[in-house]
């Protein structure tokens, strides 16, 4: 199941694990990324807390945690090569995996049609 937030993140839900990244629209708006900082595994984060930081040539931006949960894995590949986020934002450019405190909370997120409407 694929869900979206109005902060331009996508979540791929598999059981109580959400793989989280930023949308193609967000990646395009940010421009070429040159630096990514990700949360460490084991970090517990509340919805809306700063989970990651991305920097383009021009500016730094925060990526927020879309739901309450605990980080179980971070994608070292985008730390080593931030350009992956621009070239494959909704695939190899994923940010982290989040073990959801309350898997039913995903119901409140946007589906793909609603997200597309948001950025239209």
């Amino acid at each position: 199941m694929l869900k979206f937030t109005d902060e331009h993140e996508w979540l791929k839900i598999e059981g109580d694990i959400a793989t989280v990244g930023i949308t193609a629209h967000a990646a395009e708006q940010l421009g070429d990324l040159v630096f990514v900082e990700l949360p460490e595994s084991g970090t517990a984060l509340d919805k809306g807390a700063t989970a990651a930081t991305v920097e383009s040539v021009k500016a730094a931006s925060d990526v927020y945690c879309p739901l309450d949960g605990e980080i179980v894995e971070s994608n070292q590949a985008i730390v080593d090569d931030p350009a992956l986020v621009n070239s494959d934002p909704q695939g190899a450019g994923w940010f982290f995996k989040l073990k959801l405190s309350d898997p039913s909370a995903v119901d409140a997120l946007l589906d793909e049609a609603a997200y597309k409407e948001l950025i239209a």
Partner: peptide, 12 residues
């Protein structure tokens, strides 16, 4: 214009 379609890195 802050950038064109090529993007800041390529323009630089």
């Amino acid at each position: 214009p802050v950038q064109y379609p090529a993007g800041v890195l390529k323009e630089h």
